[in-house]
Amino acid sequence: MTSLSNSFSADVEPQTFAASPGQGEVSDFFALLKPRVMVLVIFTALVGMVVSHVHVQPVVATISLLMIAVGAGASGCLNMWWDADIDAVMTRTAKRPIPDGRIQPGEALAFGLVLSAGSVMILGLAANWLAAGLLAFTIVFYAVIYSMWLKRATPQNIVIGGAAGALPPIIGQAAVSGTVGIESIVLFLIIFIWTPPHFWALALIKAGEYAKAGIPMMPNVAGPVSTRRQILGYSLLLFPIGLAPVALGFGGLLYGITGLLGGLGMIAFSVHVMRNREGEAEKRAALGMFGFSILYLFLLFSALLAEHGLGLFRGVLA
């Protein structure tokens, strides 16, 4: 029996997780890395590499991409170690390996630390130390600044913490070019501004769960009306930022059309969320917003990948 002593939220009782050392399955350790987040990180970092148009050894690029993904997975693992007490309270996360008792907190901590150090070191050796430093910063930002501090302290948690999820394109560009250019900074801004409406759509539905766990998500603190207004505000802000690659010349016709339609879609879904405030319609509208936001980001980055990786770039501006 092992007790986890990192619980400091007033609303959450310290949890005890019944796991014996060395009893976890391989799949449990893999689940600690948040594989779905890793896929998103690989995808966005790859786009950051491709828009740089720097010739780089494919082997070096592949290993760099792998290490960025492992680093992201490691930060997810450290997040699960720290948040095990609140994960146990919420139905969405109660079946994660630590609260479910399949892996001991200490095992997860060691696993996360080893992968963090390993991924940063290998990225430094494979690509350069700027990329490695940015990866280390991302891991620390997500595990310490977001998980240990912001998440339980402020309703702006995912706004500021979203920076960690937005950094992979910058790391990708740094890995292949050794510098940070305007392209990856714009991609960072797109993900950064996209994060609040994406997460708050889910938080509107799961407000009760977050309240039970004592997490100050925006709907619990500012209320659902204010959250809906902010979702619309961020979607309006996302529209021009989503089209910035066209204005800067690295987003072509395909990207421009995708950004235009997708941006209008995000605004339309936000308005839909504003109008449907009760019952099943409210839930459907929020879920629709959540689902469409994932599609929006995927299509936007796919368009850039197709234009720069497959040679489909057709300039919009002369």
Partner: peptide
Amino acid sequence: ERRRKRSLAIAVVLGTLVLIFYVLTIAK
């Protein structure tokens, strides 16, 4: 059985690390 699978996974990871360092050295 769980221990056997974990040992195999560690072996695969170590083998991959050896491969990464070898291929990276040649590429560099």
